[in-house]
Amino acid sequence: MRKTVLASIGVAGAVVTLAWWMSAPLTGQAQGATNPDKAGEKYVAPHTAWGDPDLQGQWNSQTSTPLERPQSGTLAGKDTLSEEEAEGLESANIARADGPPPAGDPGTYNSFWFDRGKGLSRTSLITDPPDGRVPAYTPEAEQRLAAARAERATRGPADSYADLPIWPRCITRGWNGIGSNYSSNTQIFQSPGYVVILQELIHESRIIPLDKRDGLPARVQQWLGVSRGRWDGDTLVVETRNFDPRASYRGSSPELLLVERFTRVSPDAIDYQFTMHDPKTYVKDWTVARPMRRETGKITIFEYACHEGNYAMEGILAGARLEDKEAAAKR
Protein backbone atom coordinates (compact mmCIF):
# COMPACT_ATOMS: atom_id res chain seq x y z
CA MET A 1 0.00 0.00 0.00
CA ARG A 2 2.61 2.50 1.09
CA LYS A 3 4.82 1.35 -1.74
CA THR A 4 2.00 1.68 -4.25
CA VAL A 5 1.60 5.30 -3.25
CA LEU A 6 5.34 5.75 -3.37
CA ALA A 7 5.35 4.24 -6.81
CA SER A 8 2.90 6.75 -8.16
CA ILE A 9 4.73 9.62 -6.53
CA GLY A 10 8.01 8.38 -7.92
CA VAL A 11 6.57 8.24 -11.40
CA ALA A 12 4.94 11.59 -11.17
CA GLY A 13 8.48 12.81 -10.86
CA ALA A 14 7.44 14.84 -7.85
CA VAL A 15 10.64 14.02 -6.10
CA VAL A 16 14.07 14.06 -7.55
CA THR A 17 16.16 14.33 -4.47
CA LEU A 18 19.76 13.35 -4.45
CA ALA A 19 21.08 12.47 -1.06
CA TRP A 20 24.81 12.13 -1.32
CA TRP A 21 25.92 9.71 1.27
CA MET A 22 29.52 8.81 1.35
CA SER A 23 30.27 5.18 1.96
CA ALA A 24 32.94 2.61 1.37
CA PRO A 25 34.62 3.62 -1.88
CA LEU A 26 33.09 0.94 -4.07
CA THR A 27 33.94 2.31 -7.43
CA GLY A 28 32.29 -0.47 -9.37
CA GLN A 29 34.98 -0.12 -11.97
CA ALA A 30 37.01 -3.14 -11.03
CA GLN A 31 39.07 -4.33 -13.94
CA GLY A 32 39.18 -8.05 -13.34
CA ALA A 33 38.30 -8.95 -9.82
CA THR A 34 40.23 -6.81 -7.37
CA ASN A 35 39.03 -7.35 -3.83
CA PRO A 36 38.00 -3.94 -2.46
CA ASP A 37 38.15 -5.33 1.06
CA LYS A 38 41.79 -6.33 0.73
CA ALA A 39 43.54 -3.89 -1.53
CA GLY A 40 45.82 -5.54 -4.04
CA GLU A 41 44.74 -9.10 -3.30
CA LYS A 42 43.08 -10.96 -6.14
CA TYR A 43 39.69 -12.26 -5.05
CA VAL A 44 38.66 -15.70 -6.23
CA ALA A 45 34.91 -16.16 -6.48
CA PRO A 46 33.40 -19.37 -5.10
CA HIS A 47 31.83 -21.79 -7.56
CA THR A 48 28.63 -23.80 -7.50
CA ALA A 49 28.65 -27.59 -7.20
CA TRP A 50 28.39 -27.79 -11.00
CA GLY A 51 31.28 -25.38 -11.59
CA ASP A 52 29.69 -22.00 -12.37
CA PRO A 53 30.88 -18.88 -10.54
CA ASP A 54 28.52 -18.45 -7.58
CA LEU A 55 26.51 -15.22 -7.56
CA GLN A 56 23.72 -16.51 -5.32
CA GLY A 57 22.27 -14.56 -2.47
CA GLN A 58 20.40 -11.38 -1.72
CA TRP A 59 21.83 -8.16 -3.07
CA ASN A 60 20.95 -4.48 -2.95
CA SER A 61 22.10 -1.82 -5.41
CA GLN A 62 20.33 1.19 -3.90
CA THR A 63 22.43 4.31 -4.29
CA SER A 64 21.86 8.03 -4.11
CA THR A 65 24.47 8.65 -6.79
CA PRO A 66 22.69 9.99 -9.87
CA LEU A 67 22.90 8.38 -13.28
CA GLU A 68 24.43 11.51 -14.82
CA ARG A 69 26.97 13.97 -13.45
CA PRO A 70 25.42 17.37 -12.72
CA GLN A 71 26.33 19.97 -15.34
CA SER A 72 26.26 22.91 -12.94
CA GLY A 73 27.13 23.49 -9.29
CA THR A 74 30.10 22.22 -7.37
CA LEU A 75 30.15 18.81 -9.02
CA ALA A 76 30.33 19.94 -12.62
CA GLY A 77 33.49 18.67 -14.26
CA LYS A 78 34.45 16.37 -11.37
CA ASP A 79 34.41 12.62 -11.51
CA THR A 80 34.99 11.86 -7.84
CA LEU A 81 33.96 13.40 -4.53
CA SER A 82 35.89 14.23 -1.40
CA GLU A 83 34.39 13.13 1.89
CA GLU A 84 33.58 16.71 2.90
CA GLU A 85 31.83 17.37 -0.39
CA ALA A 86 29.78 14.23 0.01
CA GLU A 87 28.76 15.04 3.57
CA GLY A 88 27.88 18.60 2.68
CA LEU A 89 25.69 17.48 -0.18
CA GLU A 90 24.03 14.82 1.93
CA SER A 91 23.03 17.21 4.71
CA ALA A 92 21.85 19.81 2.19
CA ASN A 93 19.68 17.24 0.45
CA ILE A 94 18.21 15.85 3.66
CA ALA A 95 17.40 19.40 4.78
CA ARG A 96 15.68 20.05 1.48
CA ALA A 97 13.67 16.81 1.62
CA ASP A 98 12.63 17.41 5.24
CA GLY A 99 11.88 21.11 4.82
CA PRO A 100 8.45 22.56 4.03
CA PRO A 101 7.39 22.42 0.37
CA PRO A 102 7.22 25.59 -1.72
CA ALA A 103 3.95 27.53 -1.67
CA GLY A 104 1.21 25.81 -3.70
CA ASP A 105 2.99 22.43 -3.63
CA PRO A 106 1.33 19.79 -1.44
CA GLY A 107 4.75 18.28 -0.74
CA THR A 108 5.76 14.69 -0.65
CA TYR A 109 7.55 12.17 1.51
CA ASN A 110 10.50 13.22 3.63
CA SER A 111 13.86 11.48 3.93
CA PHE A 112 12.48 8.95 6.40
CA TRP A 113 10.19 7.44 3.76
CA PHE A 114 12.68 6.89 1.01
CA ASP A 115 15.53 4.45 0.92
CA ARG A 116 18.04 6.25 -1.22
CA GLY A 117 20.96 4.08 -0.29
CA LYS A 118 24.56 5.06 0.03
CA GLY A 119 26.37 7.36 -2.33
CA LEU A 120 29.42 6.26 -4.25
CA SER A 121 32.67 8.17 -4.44
CA ARG A 122 31.79 8.93 -8.06
CA THR A 123 29.63 11.83 -9.16
CA SER A 124 27.67 9.74 -11.66
CA LEU A 125 26.73 6.09 -12.22
CA ILE A 126 27.77 6.49 -15.84
CA THR A 127 31.44 5.59 -16.12
CA ASP A 128 31.71 5.84 -19.87
CA PRO A 129 31.73 8.27 -21.60
CA PRO A 130 34.14 9.91 -19.11
CA ASP A 131 31.98 13.04 -18.79
CA GLY A 132 29.41 10.90 -16.93
CA ARG A 133 26.57 11.88 -19.29
CA VAL A 134 24.27 9.96 -21.63
CA PRO A 135 25.73 10.56 -25.12
CA ALA A 136 23.88 12.76 -27.60
CA TYR A 137 20.97 11.33 -29.56
CA THR A 138 21.39 10.56 -33.22
CA PRO A 139 19.33 12.72 -35.63
CA GLU A 140 17.08 9.68 -36.20
CA ALA A 141 16.44 9.36 -32.45
CA GLU A 142 15.81 13.12 -32.09
CA GLN A 143 13.16 12.78 -34.76
CA ARG A 144 11.62 9.68 -33.25
CA LEU A 145 11.49 11.15 -29.75
CA ALA A 146 10.09 14.48 -31.01
CA ALA A 147 7.34 12.62 -32.87
CA ALA A 148 6.51 10.65 -29.71
CA ARG A 149 6.36 13.88 -27.67
CA ALA A 150 4.12 15.53 -30.26
CA GLU A 151 1.82 12.50 -30.30
CA ARG A 152 1.67 12.48 -26.50
CA ALA A 153 0.83 16.20 -26.44
CA THR A 154 -2.41 15.53 -28.31
CA ARG A 155 -3.84 14.09 -25.08
CA GLY A 156 -4.13 15.24 -21.49
CA PRO A 157 -2.01 13.83 -18.66
CA ALA A 158 -4.51 11.06 -17.82
CA ASP A 159 -7.13 10.72 -20.56
CA SER A 160 -6.79 6.96 -20.14
CA TYR A 161 -4.80 4.44 -18.10
CA ALA A 162 -2.59 4.00 -21.17
CA ASP A 163 -1.44 7.64 -20.88
CA LEU A 164 0.29 6.93 -17.60
CA PRO A 165 3.87 5.67 -17.44
CA ILE A 166 4.43 1.95 -16.89
CA TRP A 167 5.46 2.53 -13.24
CA PRO A 168 2.08 3.72 -11.90
CA ARG A 169 0.42 1.13 -14.17
CA CYS A 170 2.32 -1.51 -12.14
CA ILE A 171 3.48 -3.26 -15.31
CA THR A 172 7.25 -3.24 -14.78
CA ARG A 173 10.14 -1.15 -13.49
CA GLY A 174 12.48 -2.56 -16.08
CA TRP A 175 15.66 -4.51 -15.44
CA ASN A 176 17.54 -4.32 -12.17
CA GLY A 177 20.21 -1.90 -13.43
CA ILE A 178 17.74 0.98 -13.66
CA GLY A 179 17.20 1.15 -9.92
CA SER A 180 14.54 2.92 -7.91
CA ASN A 181 14.00 5.30 -5.00
CA TYR A 182 13.60 2.32 -2.71
CA SER A 183 13.76 -1.49 -2.58
CA SER A 184 16.39 -2.07 -5.26
CA ASN A 185 16.61 -5.61 -3.91
CA THR A 186 17.47 -8.66 -5.93
CA GLN A 187 18.04 -12.30 -5.15
CA ILE A 188 20.15 -14.31 -7.55
CA PHE A 189 19.32 -18.00 -8.01
CA GLN A 190 21.36 -20.48 -10.00
CA SER A 191 20.75 -23.96 -11.31
CA PRO A 192 22.70 -25.96 -13.89
CA GLY A 193 22.24 -23.99 -17.13
CA TYR A 194 20.47 -20.99 -15.63
CA VAL A 195 20.97 -17.79 -13.69
CA VAL A 196 17.78 -16.15 -12.44
CA ILE A 197 17.66 -12.61 -11.09
CA LEU A 198 14.61 -12.07 -8.94
CA GLN A 199 13.79 -8.39 -8.59
CA GLU A 200 11.60 -7.22 -5.72
CA LEU A 201 10.20 -4.49 -8.03
CA ILE A 202 7.77 -5.68 -9.42
CA HIS A 203 8.15 -9.39 -8.61
CA GLU A 204 10.12 -10.01 -11.81
CA SER A 205 12.18 -13.12 -12.46
CA ARG A 206 14.75 -12.53 -15.15
CA ILE A 207 15.38 -16.10 -16.27
CA ILE A 208 18.68 -16.26 -18.15
CA PRO A 209 19.51 -19.51 -19.96
CA LEU A 210 23.22 -20.25 -20.35
CA ASP A 211 22.92 -23.05 -22.92
CA LYS A 212 23.69 -20.81 -25.92
CA ARG A 213 20.20 -21.31 -27.32
CA ASP A 214 18.98 -18.99 -30.06
CA GLY A 215 17.22 -15.73 -29.35
CA LEU A 216 13.61 -15.14 -30.39
CA PRO A 217 12.36 -13.59 -33.63
CA ALA A 218 12.64 -9.78 -33.57
CA ARG A 219 8.86 -9.37 -33.65
CA VAL A 220 8.55 -11.19 -30.30
CA GLN A 221 9.08 -8.22 -28.04
CA GLN A 222 8.79 -8.37 -24.27
CA TRP A 223 8.76 -5.74 -21.52
CA LEU A 224 12.03 -7.13 -20.15
CA GLY A 225 13.31 -8.26 -23.53
CA VAL A 226 14.78 -11.70 -24.15
CA SER A 227 17.98 -12.51 -22.27
CA ARG A 228 20.75 -14.98 -23.05
CA GLY A 229 23.79 -15.46 -20.82
CA ARG A 230 27.32 -16.84 -20.88
CA TRP A 231 30.38 -16.93 -18.65
CA ASP A 232 33.40 -14.81 -19.56
CA GLY A 233 35.88 -16.22 -17.03
CA ASP A 234 34.15 -15.61 -13.70
CA THR A 235 31.96 -12.84 -15.13
CA LEU A 236 28.35 -13.46 -16.08
CA VAL A 237 27.62 -11.68 -19.36
CA VAL A 238 23.94 -11.22 -20.20
CA GLU A 239 22.81 -9.96 -23.59
CA THR A 240 19.22 -8.80 -23.86
CA ARG A 241 17.33 -7.90 -27.04
CA ASN A 242 13.70 -7.79 -28.21
CA PHE A 243 12.58 -4.96 -25.94
CA ASP A 244 8.98 -3.80 -26.14
CA PRO A 245 9.11 -0.22 -27.48
CA ARG A 246 7.03 0.90 -24.50
CA ALA A 247 9.85 -0.23 -22.21
CA SER A 248 12.20 2.39 -23.66
CA TYR A 249 14.86 3.56 -21.17
CA ARG A 250 16.47 6.95 -21.75
CA GLY A 251 15.08 7.07 -25.26
CA SER A 252 16.33 3.60 -26.28
CA SER A 253 14.80 1.96 -29.35
CA PRO A 254 13.50 -1.63 -29.66
CA GLU A 255 16.83 -2.40 -31.30
CA LEU A 256 18.67 -1.83 -28.05
CA LEU A 257 21.25 -4.48 -27.19
CA LEU A 258 21.72 -4.39 -23.43
CA VAL A 259 24.95 -6.02 -22.27
CA GLU A 260 25.28 -6.63 -18.54
CA ARG A 261 28.29 -7.92 -16.65
CA PHE A 262 28.15 -9.40 -13.13
CA THR A 263 31.47 -10.08 -11.37
CA ARG A 264 31.91 -11.17 -7.75
CA VAL A 265 34.67 -8.93 -6.38
CA SER A 266 34.43 -9.88 -2.71
CA PRO A 267 32.25 -12.09 -0.50
CA ASP A 268 29.80 -9.21 -0.18
CA ALA A 269 30.03 -7.30 -3.45
CA ILE A 270 29.21 -7.79 -7.11
CA ASP A 271 30.61 -5.37 -9.64
CA TYR A 272 27.57 -4.86 -11.87
CA GLN A 273 27.86 -2.92 -15.10
CA PHE A 274 25.65 -2.52 -18.12
CA THR A 275 26.33 -1.09 -21.55
CA MET A 276 23.64 0.44 -23.76
CA HIS A 277 24.38 -0.43 -27.38
CA ASP A 278 21.78 1.24 -29.57
CA PRO A 279 23.41 2.98 -32.55
CA LYS A 280 20.00 4.05 -33.82
CA THR A 281 19.60 6.17 -30.67
CA TYR A 282 22.97 7.20 -29.24
CA VAL A 283 26.01 8.54 -31.08
CA LYS A 284 28.10 6.16 -28.96
CA ASP A 285 27.64 3.34 -26.42
CA TRP A 286 27.41 4.20 -22.75
CA THR A 287 28.16 2.22 -19.62
CA VAL A 288 26.78 2.35 -16.10
CA ALA A 289 28.41 0.80 -13.03
CA ARG A 290 26.03 0.16 -10.15
CA PRO A 291 27.64 -1.96 -7.40
CA MET A 292 25.56 -4.64 -5.68
CA ARG A 293 26.11 -5.20 -1.98
CA ARG A 294 25.09 -8.33 -0.14
CA GLU A 295 22.06 -8.02 2.09
CA THR A 296 23.01 -9.46 5.42
CA GLY A 297 21.00 -10.12 8.55
CA LYS A 298 17.30 -10.81 8.40
CA ILE A 299 16.51 -8.59 5.42
CA THR A 300 14.88 -10.59 2.66
CA ILE A 301 13.03 -10.01 -0.56
CA PHE A 302 9.37 -9.27 0.09
CA GLU A 303 6.35 -9.61 -2.15
CA TYR A 304 5.76 -6.36 -4.02
CA ALA A 305 2.10 -6.62 -4.97
CA CYS A 306 1.70 -3.36 -6.90
CA HIS A 307 -1.27 -3.86 -9.23
CA GLU A 308 -3.32 -5.60 -6.54
CA GLY A 309 -3.58 -2.41 -4.48
CA ASN A 310 -3.25 0.22 -7.18
CA TYR A 311 -5.73 2.72 -5.80
CA ALA A 312 -3.57 5.49 -7.25
CA MET A 313 -4.67 4.54 -10.77
CA GLU A 314 -8.36 5.04 -10.02
CA GLY A 315 -7.56 8.20 -8.05
CA ILE A 316 -5.50 9.74 -10.85
CA LEU A 317 -8.08 8.94 -13.54
CA ALA A 318 -11.08 10.01 -11.44
CA GLY A 319 -9.25 13.24 -10.55
CA ALA A 320 -8.55 13.93 -14.22
CA ARG A 321 -12.25 13.39 -15.09
CA LEU A 322 -13.22 15.83 -12.31
CA GLU A 323 -10.84 18.39 -13.78
CA ASP A 324 -12.41 17.83 -17.22
CA LYS A 325 -15.84 18.56 -15.73
CA GLU A 326 -14.64 21.70 -13.97
CA ALA A 327 -12.95 22.95 -17.13
CA ALA A 328 -16.14 22.32 -19.15
CA ALA A 329 -18.22 24.21 -16.57
CA LYS A 330 -15.93 27.25 -16.86
CA ARG A 331 -16.34 27.44 -20.63
Binding site: Q56, Q187, F189, V196, I202, S205, K298
Partner: peptide, 30 residues
Protein backbone atom coordinates in the same frame (compact mmCIF):
# COMPACT_ATOMS: atom_id res chain seq x y z
CA UNK B 1 9.95 -23.01 -13.54
CA UNK B 2 11.67 -24.49 -10.51
CA UNK B 3 15.14 -23.05 -9.92
CA UNK B 4 16.97 -25.25 -7.44
CA UNK B 5 20.59 -25.07 -6.40
CA UNK B 6 22.41 -27.09 -3.76
CA UNK B 7 21.80 -26.48 -0.07
CA UNK B 8 21.73 -24.13 1.74
CA UNK B 9 20.48 -21.94 -1.13
CA UNK B 10 16.81 -21.04 -1.42
CA UNK B 11 14.61 -22.46 -4.21
CA UNK B 12 12.70 -20.17 -6.57
CA UNK B 13 9.33 -20.93 -8.11
CA UNK B 14 8.73 -18.63 -11.05
CA UNK B 15 5.29 -18.72 -12.66
CA UNK B 16 4.46 -17.47 -16.14
CA UNK B 17 1.08 -16.06 -15.09
CA UNK B 18 1.44 -12.42 -13.98
CA UNK B 19 5.21 -12.88 -13.49
CA UNK B 20 4.29 -14.33 -10.11
CA UNK B 21 7.00 -15.96 -8.05
CA UNK B 22 7.84 -17.12 -4.59
CA UNK B 23 10.99 -17.92 -2.72
CA UNK B 24 11.06 -21.21 -0.84
CA UNK B 25 13.23 -20.35 2.13
CA UNK B 26 15.45 -23.36 2.75
CA UNK B 27 18.28 -22.09 4.94
CA UNK B 28 16.60 -19.44 7.04
CA UNK B 29 13.03 -20.45 7.76
CA UNK B 30 11.56 -17.11 8.74
Amino acid sequence: QIVQSTEPNDILLSYEFASASRIIHMSTNQ
